[in-house]
Design a protein around this nucleic acid. Structure first.
Length: 851
RNA sequence: GCGGGCGUGGCGGAAUGGUAGACGCAUCGGACUUAAAAUCCGUAGCCCUCCGGGGCGUGUGGGUUCGAGUCCCACCGCCCGCACCA
């Protein structure tokens, strides 16, 4: 028997699409547009099966929308800047540029055989000077609008690699690469003013109806809005020009429980006191050690230092409290100073117990009015509690009510102001790295920081750099830094910081609408193509990438590069699950795990054995990892089974938002099924025979399948859609309908499969004499008249349990159905001559007899 | 600690409040074959059965409903996000 030969067939149709320019995106005002985008890949060197799943999902949507009459934009590019390229240069020699472009070439070659409906003419890499030059232009416009600024900030500094590290690059307080103890260092850094938009970024989440609730929630938590009171504590004696300390609190209602006033080690007052207090300076130096990550801070023990200063309680000038420096107070939240209320805050309590400071209850539980011991009493803010001599006269009230009442009270007395604050901080974009987009400004001795002139863009990275010494090669380059001040023309120095790679990915979606434009975007193209109608990617980008992109879209609107309608750039978001694989493991003589490649393991009855007969332990469905040897290589899958099999399998087994486990058996089954469809198509193409009475049934099934599969694709129910396609294949194979009806049904099946298995679909289309490319054929539409049966089978329940069924004409009146139901033997038996209490007929669905 | 999600056969999973287990994998039986592969057909939640059928079943316990995998409450288990944020 002949077999389907995917390798030859897939190549043939990829060439046909290429030659016909089938997937070139063309703006056509006569058509509705649809922009499908999958998060673009980092050019690590090889594609992995997760890419296959991600891009296949996008491709299904893109091909379906195209068939359904949309002008579709489905582009691909490369998120190409970043540290791995520099690390490769440091470890293996070579240049980050060569490494990156080499990887892109390899990955493009691995990706193209998947047969994705991508408009490759729009491809770009973020390290192309044409791209990052426009990014520099964007930066200058944002600088002009006050959306970028420079400030001193405390950062994670790796003293060996001599660079700033992002929080996630600090592991257990040490640099992830160098292993050196990370220091908190204050540096002048560039920042995007994302915090200005915190309120809008939070409020606008409500309008994102087609985003997963989980992602919106994660963003909302990240932005973290809180309402509180800002007010001042007067020092008993002014010191270093400070006569008061500003404090922010979300629990002003606990003001009477104040124990001490705490200030951050980075507070201006701390810095002033350090100068003439060596003990304090030493203590503060200790506190500043270690990373700034929240995790590192949590593990750190509470440290404090009594400054000896005293402040007066705002509600009682006779009440004096000590001022402590405490390591758990962050300078960049609130005012960098707090009042501690140990009775109702665990870390304040820990601190007070350690340093023997007073603990005063301000409220107690209604049912159990115990004073606080080792555990702070922190009930939900919605729970009613009993207040102890509250200054605004509260007795029994919830925390919420008390907070509102207190803010009100303090504002009326002119003692403080209600303030809304956000957890979200400005986005530090400076990186002391080579392989990134240069920040296009110049430092002039006379003019200060001067923006580069737009006509000088792109400021290109120099090629002649070395990576044999740690630190930023741009800093030590002999000539690259030298330039003329754009303002006064005198010799000046370029900024050597480059941009965080998150900047690159924060606007690439807009650039795809006009990737060769000589401005960041082209107004006409961007108006036509934006927004991204469907964005698809991993949940790991739920916060940073998506939040930054939302910020950039707003910034690009303010700078005239995006229309207002694109300030929320992604209409719908889908977060797909991972592709996982079992781990095969044995133990060595020291009981350490030894991992085995799937191809070295033979599976029998759910158990796995090595070639020498040793049984392996199977750890199911784990994240793929090279070190665990549970990685499947898409290149091998495509070679062995073809791209259509890989595409079909990654979609078929699990809902797209959940993880799917790659199994060899599953891939083989997918391959078998596609072969079966191919053979069936061949049989049907050769079939002769007049119409039969089975034609109507087959066509009815066909229309149902069209309806179900279309609905499945529309709602990202790819696995369910594929299940319907399996079922319809069996129906078609068993049908005794005539040749014409079968050919019609087969063509519909090919069309419905075409988004998932486009090559096979083209092949079948051709076998059955379909006109042109199936990719150009209009999507089949289900005829509503064919979806309703003439008769329906109604299950009959007695007290909610199924007892029988009747088949009746679909529009039979209720009364007649009721008569038939009561006449049913099973019903009559259950009634035993009596009358039912109730008879519920849900037309077309079910009947329930209540006895 | 705070927030969110999910628990359905041996496995992946399906099911607008309306016949639970579609579809696929694995399993078992059969056909074709000298044989195997490939292919095709059939069976399959658990228990009982006089073979007509009956009972029990979607993590556990309650509730709403004519009817609950689906809605509500409590609990158990697993997964994820955030976390010294004042």
């Amino acid at each position: 028997m002949s077999r389907y030969e995917p390798q030859a067939v897939e190549k043939k149709w990829q060439e046909a699409w290429q030659n016909a320019g089938t997937f070139t995106a063309v703006a056509d005002p006569a058509k509705p547009k649809y922009y499908v985008l999958e998060m673009f890949p980092y050019p690590s060197g090889r594609i992995h099966i997760g890419h296959v799943r991600n891009y296949t999902m996008g491709d299904v949507v893109a091909r379906y929308k195209r068939s359904a009459g949309h002008a579709v934009l489905h582009p691909m590019g490369w998120d190409a800047f970043g540290m791995p390229a520099e690390n490769a240069a440091m470890e293996q020699g070579g240049h980050p540029k060569d490494w990156t472009y080499g990887n892109i070439a390899v990955m493009r070659d691995q990706m193209k055989p998947l047969g994705l409906s991508i408009d490759w003419s729009r491809e770009f890499a973020t390290c192309d000077p044409e791209y990052y030059g426009q990014q520099q232009a964007l930066f200058l416009d944002m600088l002009d609008k006050g959306l970028v600024y420079r400030k001193n900030a405390v950062v994670n500094w790796d003293p060996v690699d001599m660079t700033v590290l992002a929080n996630e690059q600090v592991i257990d307080g040490k640099g992830w690469r160098s292993g050196a103890e990370v220091e908190r260092r204050e540096l002048t850094q560039w920042f995007f003013k994302i915090s200005d938009m915190a309120g809008d970024l939070l409020d606008a989440l409500d309008g994102l109806d087609d985003w997963p609730a989980k992602v919106k929630l994660m963003q909302a938590n990240w932005i973290g809005r809180s309402r509180g009171l800002q007010f001042a504590w007067e020092l008993t004696a002014p010191v270093h020009g400070h006569d008061r300390i500003e404090v922010y609190t979300t629990r002003p209602d606990t003001l009477m429980g104040a124990s001490f006033l705490g200030i951050s080690p980075d507070h201006p007052l701390t810095r002033a006191l350090e100068a003439d207090n060596p003990d304090l300076a030493a203590a503060v130096a200790q506190m500043r050690k270690g990373g700034t990550t929240e995790e590192a801070l949590e593990k750190a023990e509470k440290l404090g230092f009594d400054t000896g200063l005293m402040v007066r309680h705002p509600l009682n000038p006779d009440w004096e409290l000590p001022v402590w420096v405490a390591n758990f107070i962050l300078m960049d939240y609130g005012t960098g100073a707090i009042f501690a209320c140990p009775a109702h805050d665990q870390r304040d309590l820990d601190f007070c117990r350690k340093y023997d400071l007073p603990v005063t209850d301000t409220f107690v539980a209604l049912d159990d009015p115990q004073p606080v011991g080792k555990t702070a009493f922190v009930p939900p803010k919605t729970e009613k509690v009993k207040w102890l001599n509250h200054f605004a006269g509260l007795d029994v009230a919830t925390g919420e009510e008390a907070i509102d009442a207190t803010i009100d009270h303090m504002e009326r007395k002119g003692l403080g102001t209600g303030v809304t604050k956000y957890r979200l901080r400005d986005w530090g974009l400076s990186r002391q790295r080579y392989w990134g987009c240069p920040i296009p400004v110049v430092h002039c001795a006379d003019c200060g920081v001067v923006p580069e002139k737009k006509e000088n863009l792109p400021i290109e990275l120099p090629d002649d750099v070395s990576f044999d010494v740690p630190g930023n090669p741009l800093d030590r380059h002999p000539t690259w830094r030298d330039c003329a001040c754009p303002s006064c023309g005198k010799p000046a120095k370029r900024e050597t910081d480059t941009m965080d790679t998150f900047v690159d990915s924060s606007w690439y979606f807009a650039r795809f609408t006009a990737p060769r434009a000589t401005t960041p975007t082209d107004p006409e193209e961007v108006r036509y193509w934006m927004n991204v109608d469907q964005y698809i990617g991993g949940i790991e980008h739920a916060i940073l990438h998506l939040l930054y992109s939302r910020f950039f879209a707003r910034a690009m609107h303010l700078t005239g590069h995006l229309p207002e309608s694109a300030t929320e750039p992604f209409n719908a978001l889908f977060t797909q699950g991972m592709v996982t694989h079992a781990i095969f493991q044995t133990r060595d003589d020291k009981d350490r795990p030894v991992y085995h490649f799937p191809e070295d393991v033979e599976l029998r009855d759910g158990r796995g054995f090595l070639k020498d007969g040793t049984e392996v332990e199977i750890i199911p469905s784990a994240k793929m990892s090279k070190s665990k040897k549970n990685v499947v290589d898409p290149v091998r899958i495509i070679r062995d089974f073809g791209a259509d099999t890989a595409r079909w399998f990654v979609l078929s087994d699990s809902p797209p938002d959940r993880d799917v486990e790659w199994t060899e058996a599953g891939a083989e089954a997918a391959n078998k099924h596609l072969n079966r469809v191919w053979r069936l198509a061949g049989d049907i193409a050769a079939l002769e025979g007049a119409p039969t009475e089975a034609d109507a049934t087959l066509l009815r099934e066909m229309h149902k399948t069209i309806f179900d599969v279309t609905g499945g694709i529309d709602s990202f129910g790819f696995n369910a859609a594929i299940a319907k396609l399996y079922a319809f294949t069996t129906t078609l194979a068993k049908s005794s309908a005539g040749a014409e009806a079968k050919r019609t049904a087969m063509r519909a099946l090919a069309q419905l499969m075409s988004p998932m298995t486009p090559h096979l679909a083209e092949e079948i289309w051709q076998m059955l004499g379909g006109e042109g490319l199936i990719a150009d054929a209009p999507w089949p539409v289900a005829d509503p008249a064919m979806l309703v049966e003439d008769t329906v089978t109604l299950p009959i329940q007695v007290n909610g349990k199924r007892r029988s069924e009747i088949t009746v004409p679909k529009d039979m009146p209720k009364e007649e159905v009721e008569k038939l139901v009561l006449a049913e033997e099973a019903v009559a038996k259950a009634l035993a001559g009596g009358q039912p209490k109730k008879l519920i007929v849900v037309p077309g669905r079910i009947v329930n007899v209540v006895i």
